[in-house]
């Protein structure tokens, strides 16, 4: 059975387009404070080496793509293979405020890369995602990630990874859903996105929403409140 995920994402790049790196860092910190407040502090660090593989010429019914994710935030690396289907189409899907995609994941032993090479897959690109993840339990479990994307200058040289857009992070909201509970999942994720609205507007990938006018004020307020709690 396929799992469906409602997928909200946008680059903070749009928001921070004309901001300095310091200001961008403050926005990132503010988002962290806000999310911590919403979920009760269950924040986890995230460091993932992501490898995108493409099927070799003439292999398979049609060209295909698969992602290998190696989580580096634990003592021992944990490997996952992920297949992401295309976004759901149709008039109903267009109306939804998030992409709906079939996403299948499986944990896999550490020889995963050698395995897919042997099956005829070739590396398309690799990157490192560094950031943090929050889990929220609403009507459906919601995962929020804020990550910085880093390019890998040499093959598998993940320790030398360089941020593609320094000080800018990608914020993604995902939630599992089935064909039966669409409306519940949409409602839960949309209302959750409203909590972040003073800082960031979330939209489907590729749909620009512009800068949030209140972002700088909200960020300054959140960061100072966060600092007060720490002290």
């Amino acid at each position: 059975m396929h799992k469906y995920y409602f997928f909200f994402q946008r680059f903070l790049k749009t928001i921070f387009y004309s901001e300095s790196r310091f200001t961008a860092s403050m926005h990132v910190e503010a988002l962290q404070v806000l999310l911590q407040g919403l979920c009760g502090g269950r924040q986890e660090k995230l460091k993932i080496h992501e490898i995108c593989l493409k099927s070799g010429t003439n292999l398979g019914v049609e060209a295909s793509e698969v992602h290998l994710l190696c989580s580096l935030s634990q003592t021992d690396p944990v490997w996952t293979v992920r297949h992401v289907g295309g976004p759901m189409r149709g008039a109903g899907a267009e109306q939804l405020p998030a992409h709906v995609r079939s996403v299948l994941e499986s944990s896999i032993s550490s020889n995963a890369l050698r395995f897919f090479y042997a099956l005829g897959y070739k590396m398309d690109y690799e990157l490192v995602r560094i950031g943090y993840v929050f889990q929220f339990q609403r009507v459906v479990p919601i995962t929020v990630t804020a990550t910085m994307l880093c390019k890998v200058p040499k093959l598998h040289a993940i320790d030398e990874a360089i941020p593609v857009t320094p000080g800018i992070q990608l914020v993604e909201l995902t939630a599992p859903a089935s064909t039966e509970n669409y409306s519940e999942a949409v409602g839960a994720i949309s209302s959750f996105a409203e909590h972040l609205a003073p800082l960031i507007h979330l939209s489907k990938p590729g749909v620009p929403t512009g800068v949030v006018p209140t972002a700088s004020t909200a960020a300054a307020s959140l960061v100072s409140r966060g600092a007060m709690k720490v002290s």
């Binding site: 293979v81 299948l104 994941e105 499986s106 944990s107 896999i108 032993s109 020889n111 995963a112 050698r114 395995f115 042997a118």
Partner: peptide, 9 residues
């Protein structure tokens, strides 16, 4: 090579 995965593979 022996590869271990979840049944969802």
């Amino acid at each position: 090579m022996v590869v271990e995965a979840d049944s969802t593979i």
